[in-house]
Computed example of a mutant assay.
Amino acid sequence: MQAVELFAGAGGLGIGISRAGFRPQRIVEWNRHCQATLKANASDEQSEAGGWPDHVDSDVREVDFRDLEGKLDLVSGGPPCQPFSLGGRHQAHADSRDMFPEAVRAIREAKPRAFIFENVRGLTRQSFRNYFEYIRLQMQYPELTSRKGEDWAEHLSRLERHHNSKRGSRGLEYTLLTEVLNAANFGVPQKRERVFFVGFRNDIKTGWTFPTQTHSHEALLFDQIHGTYFDRHKVARRERLVSERAKARLLRVDGTHEGILPWNTVRDAIHDLPDPERNPTLASRHSAHRLQPGARAYPGHTGSPLDEPAKTLKAGVHGVPGGENMLARPDGSVRYFTVRESARLQTFPDNYKIEGVWSEAMRQLGNAVPVTLAETVARSVAASLTKKG
């Protein structure tokens, strides 16, 4: 199946959709460090991105998608999230970095059978409610464009009237579902919430729904308290830390939900990597696994405990990312995650190269879509596109 990847970043969403059977025909990404990462992996036959287009379009505003009309099964991407990020300036529609209009244009021009877009959970905040609805309705009716001199609120009103009308034919139209997904609930060793927009062109008849979660916090607690989690990892008894609050939580739930797996933890993700601070010689044998000095904990930035999924990795606005990108050991000490560890927390394969110095590599990973989460959503979309009758 043929796809186009917009705002590709480091390639997390792209790898996920490729695993689901989609083949990127065009890739768009403006950041030069992300471009270097995408090109390095496209030219590597051993990489999961090997064979991707070696040309990356840099400015989505200059890309004409009309030559792809009728040829695409999927358009996907993560429009820049700074306008909606809880850590940003929250300007939304007033922010020139808002690239959702370009995502809608790609849908309008290419008319794909389906699309997958994702963004930060902050987009669903109450203060952005009207603009969130505006994005939704534009994706549903991409041909109903804004008129000259019409502001976004006026355009929203016209889209709402169109949506509520009883007309028969309404041009290009998509059935759209949106949902906030926590990556930890799908096997990613990181608590990372993203909002997904998934649409199917109206001639594609499908009863698609978002995938149901496969992992849970309660199942992890049960495994740690009553199961074999700590024994599997050969954790000393003094380091088997499960809070009383967590134990109380487990008592309040009915069993561990049959068929639900435990959340994956930081320890699950990096247990086989030597500690780069305590054993730098062994650590250096692993690519991109070197200590970055200078980590310190302070209120609000205390690092990620080993025996939970990591806190959300952050991109960092001014260079070095925040305390969420640190490992918090049971003895209270902290250090920064290495690039290799961060890539594992985002479920990138070990042979995937992240180009750039540490701060730039961490920025790419902090902005990325976890590969496993992307794959889960993309596989369910692919199944709906390929099912018979």
Results as ranks from 00 to 15, higher is better:
residue 2 Q to L: 11
residue 6 L to P: 03
residue 15 I to W: 05
residue 18 S to F: 01
residue 22 F to A: 02
residue 25 Q to Y: 02
residue 27 I to T: 07
residue 35 Q to C: 15
residue 35 Q to P: 10
residue 37 T to V: 12
residue 37 T to R: 12
residue 46 Q to N: 14
residue 59 D to C: 09
residue 68 L to H: 06
residue 72 L to F: 04
residue 73 D to C: 11
residue 77 G to Q: 07
residue 78 G to V: 05
residue 79 P to W: 00
residue 80 P to Q: 04
residue 84 F to M: 02
residue 86 L to M: 09
residue 88 G to F: 03
residue 90 H to K: 14
residue 93 H to W: 00
residue 94 A to V: 00
residue 95 D to M: 00
residue 100 F to V: 07
residue 102 E to A: 10
residue 104 V to Q: 03
residue 105 R to L: 08
residue 111 K to T: 14
residue 114 A to K: 09
residue 116 I to L: 15
residue 117 F to G: 01
residue 122 G to W: 11
residue 125 R to T: 00
residue 128 F to P: 00
residue 131 Y to T: 00
residue 135 I to A: 01
residue 140 Q to I: 13
residue 142 P to G: 02
residue 148 K to A: 14
residue 150 E to S: 07
residue 155 H to C: 04
residue 156 L to Q: 10
residue 156 L to S: 05
residue 163 H to N: 12
residue 163 H to T: 05
residue 166 K to T: 14
residue 167 R to I: 11
residue 170 R to W: 03
residue 171 G to L: 12
residue 172 L to G: 02
residue 172 L to I: 13
residue 178 T to D: 02
residue 179 E to N: 12
residue 183 A to T: 08
residue 186 F to T: 04
residue 193 E to K: 15
residue 195 V to M: 07
residue 199 G to H: 07
residue 199 G to D: 03
residue 206 T to E: 05
residue 207 G to K: 13
residue 215 H to N: 13
residue 215 H to P: 04
residue 216 S to N: 02
residue 222 F to G: 06
residue 223 D to W: 05
residue 228 T to S: 15
residue 230 F to S: 08
residue 234 K to M: 13
residue 237 R to G: 03
residue 239 E to Q: 14
residue 242 V to C: 12
residue 243 S to A: 12
residue 243 S to R: 07
residue 243 S to W: 06
residue 244 E to G: 12
residue 253 V to S: 09
residue 257 H to Q: 14
residue 258 E to V: 11
residue 263 W to N: 13
residue 263 W to Q: 10
residue 263 W to T: 10
residue 264 N to W: 05
residue 273 L to W: 08
residue 276 P to A: 10
residue 289 H to W: 09
residue 291 L to R: 14
residue 294 G to R: 09
residue 295 A to N: 06
residue 298 Y to V: 08
residue 302 T to S: 05
residue 304 S to V: 09
residue 305 P to D: 02
residue 308 E to N: 12
residue 310 A to C: 12
residue 316 G to E: 03
residue 319 G to N: 05
residue 322 G to Y: 04
residue 326 M to R: 09
residue 333 S to G: 04
residue 335 R to E: 07
residue 350 D to Y: 06
residue 353 K to D: 00
residue 355 E to M: 15
residue 356 G to H: 08
residue 363 R to P: 09
residue 367 N to Q: 09
residue 371 V to W: 07
residue 371 V to E: 03
residue 371 V to N: 11
residue 372 T to E: 13
residue 374 A to M: 07
residue 377 V to G: 02
residue 379 R to H: 02
